[in-house]
Simulated assay, not measured.
Amino acid sequence: MTAPPCPPLLRAALPAARTRSSAALARSLGAAALAVSATGCLVISPPAYEPPEKTAPVLTAVFPPPYRPVHIDLLNPLDKIKDFGATVLSEDNGEPVQIALYIDYGRRTSNKYPYRRSVDAPSVAAGTIAGGQRPFTRTLDLNIESIPNDGVTPERECHTLTMMASHALNENKCNCPDDPDDMSWITWQLITCDPDEPTCPTSCPALDCETTPCLFCDDPSLAEGCTDS
């Protein structure tokens, strides 16, 4: 069955509507052509870009496991070199992540330091969260760095190694992170004796701040600076 023909008035209106639509399209194309010819190119503004906000680094231990004490025989030069591996995840905005190693972190010394030894360590190159965790290794060489050996067993043999990460370490704050909100750390237990010796501890008690003077890097008193005496 064929469609009925359009009424005479409708047939007359269709060409007129097509004419008006064609004229409007031509005017739009002409305006675009005029804009291109005036500047030589059609410029489209790029969307505004905001860099991601910098975040505090997050450290994750890789090896050794932080729950397992690390025995170091101080009479064996080869055993006095230990590697400690971790990953860091952070949005750095181009700033490298600074790394510090503290021996006996949290034990306040007489000269107001929050650790008994500090070991220099290279920084980690800047990265992004989208780039994922960045693995790195730092070495503790007790042939170069000394470790406290005062006290009696087991205090003499029981120590800790803390790996601290931040975007800025401040020498005026005992080489602690400048911003307490921009830091992360991992602590391993060190036992400095031959594990085959019967008097060598297999584990060490946790730091007791009720019996031992304690101080940590997020303590506001560090803003007063550290002393050398």
Rank of each mutant, 00 (worst) to 15 (best):
G106C: 13
T87M: 09
D83H: 09
I99C: 05
Q98I: 08
K80L: 11
S90N: 06
I103H: 06
D79Y: 07
E91H: 04
A100N: 09
P77A: 14
Q98A: 15
I99F: 09
L101E: 07
G85F: 11
I103T: 01
E95F: 11
I81L: 14
S90W: 10
E91F: 01
V97P: 00
V88A: 12
S90L: 12
V97A: 01
E91R: 00
L101F: 05
V88D: 01
I99P: 00
D83S: 14
D92K: 03
A100K: 15
G106E: 09
A86H: 12
A100M: 13
D83M: 10
A100Q: 11
K80Y: 04
Y102M: 15
Y102W: 11
D92P: 01
G94N: 08
K82E: 05
L89G: 10
D83Y: 04
T87E: 11
Y105K: 12
G94H: 10
S90G: 01
G106T: 03
E95H: 11
F84T: 10
A100E: 03
A100P: 00
K80S: 09
I81A: 07
E91P: 00
Y105H: 14
Y102N: 08
A86C: 12
G106Y: 08
D83E: 11
G94D: 10
I103G: 02
V88W: 08
L89A: 13
G85C: 15
A100I: 04
E95W: 13
T87F: 08
I103R: 02
K80V: 05
Q98N: 09
G94Q: 09
E95G: 04
E91Y: 08
T87W: 06
D79C: 02
Y105R: 13
Y105N: 15
K80F: 10
A86G: 10
V97F: 04
P96V: 02
D92V: 03
D104P: 01
Y102K: 06
A86P: 00
D83V: 04
K80R: 15
V88E: 00
L89Q: 08
L101W: 04
Y105Q: 10
N93M: 09
D79E: 11
D92W: 02
G85A: 15
E95P: 00
E91S: 02
D104A: 11
K80E: 03
I103L: 15
Q98M: 12
I103W: 02
S90D: 05
G94T: 11
Y102D: 08
D92Q: 09
P96M: 01
F84Q: 10
G106K: 05
I81D: 01
I81R: 14
D92S: 13
A100C: 05
D104L: 04
D104N: 15
I103S: 06
G85L: 13
I81H: 05
Y105P: 03
I103Y: 02
A100T: 01
Y105I: 05
P96E: 01
I103C: 02
G85T: 13
G106H: 04
T87H: 06
D83N: 12
T87L: 06
T87Y: 06
N93H: 07
P77F: 14
A100H: 13
I99D: 00
L78T: 12
P77M: 14
G106F: 07
Q98H: 05
L78H: 12
V97Y: 09
I81T: 12
A86E: 03
Y102E: 12
L89T: 14
I103A: 08
Q98L: 05
F84H: 04
L101P: 00
D104W: 04
S90I: 04
D79V: 02
S90A: 15
A86T: 02
E95Y: 09
I103F: 06
